[in-house]
Design a protein around this nucleic acid. Sequence first.
DNA 1: ATGTCTTTGTGAACGCGTGCACAAAGATTG
DNA 2: CAATCTTTGTGCACGCGTTCACAAAGACAT
Lengths: 217, 217
Amino acid sequence: MPTVSSEELAAAAGVNSAKLRKDFSYLGSYGTRGVGYDVEYLVYQISRELGLTQDWPVVIVGIGNLGAALANYGGFASRGFRVAALIDADPAMAGKPVAGIPVQHTDELESIITDNGVSIGVIATPAGAAQQVCDRLVAAGVTSILNFAPTVLSVPDGVDVRKVDLSIELQILAFHEQRKAGEEAAAESAAAPVAATRKNSATDQGPDGDVPAVMPA
Amino acid sequence: MPTVSSEELAAAAGVNSAKLRKDFSYLGSYGTRGVGYDVEYLVYQISRELGLTQDWPVVIVGIGNLGAALANYGGFASRGFRVAALIDADPAMAGKPVAGIPVQHTDELESIITDNGVSIGVIATPAGAAQQVCDRLVAAGVTSILNFAPTVLSVPDGVDVRKVDLSIELQILAFHEQRKAGEEAAAESAAAPVAATRKNSATDQGPDGDVPAVMPA
DNA sequence: ATGTCTTTGTGAACGCGTGCACAAAGATTG
DNA sequence: CAATCTTTGTGCACGCGTTCACAAAGACAT
């Protein structure tokens, strides 16, 4: 039976092993003392907790470049997501297959949501159409929305919205880039250490961490 | 002179006003006691600190759906980014304009980087090509990379990488969706409160916050 | 000018999460 | 079966960031 110790996992993830054990303990006691964690069982338990073992039908609204990119993105299926439908307002798109799935017209939105029991919607429309699409999705029963349009959506209580701003990551890189340049001509401005930049781990390639808490766009 | 108080800003952002004032204080003393912060001046100071007042030439490598979507994305220009070039390995793409910018062949990569003084590169290639493209970008002088390919890139010290995984946000939504469903059939599993989900503010639509620290993909 | 009122900037206290350190548990060996 | 060794699960202490609370600063009214 293949196993891993918290120590090994912690080293790989660049975190403290005690923290990792404590985090796992919230999911239950899945480890064996003196041995470690059964890899397969652990993966299953974490997958289950994260909802990866369920099948999540999603609809993508707005099949432009971004919508098409999302439809083609392979990472969805492996994470338990199933693209139930692609929806676009352009009648010329209707019926045309993208990533093997025929695009349907916005008129069908409500029936698609209902018939497929969709609770997660992805908005990849232009900014102007986003709120309207959002309202229709919510009215049809969607309770989670992933928004790629550059607008803050307003939704009723009980509906989750996550906004993805593709330029924010670039901005963070530029921020670091600027600091790199600044260090060469170092110590030009005396004090003002600017919200201490903490580096989590050497292999940190993710969002979160290293971003100032308050910094409006 | 239009001004804002830390109290107003804090309310709008859903944070504590003292924290906001302390954060601002790291940038210097830009407020006036009894009045607040001069909006225009504050915006300028924050913009400058974040590097938004500089011009950042970027190259986008891999002009598929995603690359094209990025090239068309309006949010870049307004944040100080300038798409210096679009690069693709497909010779058939060469010369074809995307978002008004002609696509150039991978052969030109090094000269483009050098000639334009590009320090930030965006990788939107398939997973298989990403590391190779990354190596060439770095060799040519790029020191910050935004990676949309589903691969973890390895880079030398001094080079920043940020990986954007479009499915992670969906996964977070699915996680919450699952918990919503679980609450109805509540208290089925006794204890195990699972890493307490903290909600930052009522209007939180952003990444960060509300995500478990350790949770491998 | 003097007083009052508002809001900043920050020292100090509090609270929470992280990491330490160890007892308990179980595997493994003789 | 006893002894030893490894690794988990967790109580506790420390440290850091958030929040409180207030003195200082400046605007504005009288």
